[in-house]
Design a protein around this nucleic acid. Structure first.
Lengths: 159, 159
DNA sequence: CCATATATTGAATAATTATTCAATTTGTAT
DNA sequence: ATACAAATTGAATAATTATTCAATATATGG
């Protein structure tokens, strides 16, 4: 292994910033970064990352990262899935630590579990603290980026 | 023409209620309704309807109607795109009439314009009234269904 | 360290989807 | 009504994406 992780991160990054209409197109962009592999692998990666294909006025169809739980559920009526109670995110020895208001940890952890970005292997929640266990070879910043999609509140936090 | 509209409505209905993984599958379901045409046409229809293909745990990828403006934007922070001010929807001679709070008509009309479901050709907004001009061969209920996706408030209105 | 199970990947190919081209129908303007 | 333009569609085919199969690499347990 070792290379797959880098590839998956690069795919996420490229897709989030560009309008990609085909796997071949994406394959070329990845080659430019020194990542060489075949379309078969890319097809599998896209499915693994749950990447969607959405209609686009200019390019017909383009790839798009899946909506985070936060985006999907925040606005809907009852607000059952909002990440309310979030306080902070810090890192210690590659592990993430989220602090929440008392009692909120497990609900936020379950949101993270549901989104299950590949950067995060899993999480353990107490009453007001969540331990985030990242995937190997994933940086602190990678984890932060993945979490921002799930917990919009993080965007405003500079820590 | 005459048949295309019926086909497009059937496609929307089937996709919204079932997990469809391929055009061939959809084609068969449409045949059962007495709608006969080819995959080429279906491919064009799906693009026309801006149907997306999203990752699904069970079936790999499935077709999905585009998110409405309402769903997309309601929950995000500032709420700039919510259909606030909506009051009622009625019909008169195939034309829809939306009543809003004073001053809200144009903002709601612009939300409808952006979503631009094919059932609606266009809309004209005054200060507190919006005129909805439906596509030919589209029923009142069709228009209502399309609008529910855009203006969730409609769901609660029995009119 | 060795043996075995699991994962990852490419090449080839199968399956699916989009497009081209021609034909036909529908709409518009005299 | 007639002529011309625009839209709709199917058949064939091109383009794209997913999967199969085999090979290789990686992890796990003794």
């Amino acid at each position: 292994m070792g290379n797959r992780t880098e590839r998956l991160l690069a795919i996420k990054e490229i897709i989030s910033g560009n309008k990609i209409a085909s796997q071949e197109e994406l394959l070329h962009l990845l080659e430019r970064r020194g990542l060489n592999f075949t379309q078969a692998t890319l097809s599998r990666d896209l499915k693994f990352l749950k990447v969607n294909k959405i209609a686009d006025a200019q390019k017909g169809y383009i790839y798009k990262l899946p909506d985070s739980i936060g985006e999907q559920n925040r606005p809907i009526a009852n607000g059952a899935y909002s990440a309310q109670g979030f306080l902070s995110l810090q890192f210690s020895n590659k592990l993430g630590v989220i602090k929440t208001l008392p009692g909120y940890a497990s609900s936020i952890a379950s949101i993270i579990d549901r989104a299950s970005p590949f950067e995060i292997i899993g999480s353990i929640a107490g009453d007001d603290t969540i331990l985030i266990i990242p995937h190997d070879n994933v940086t602190e910043q990678d984890v932060r980026n993945a979490l921002v999609l799930i917990i919009p509140e993080l965007k405003e936090q500079l820590t």
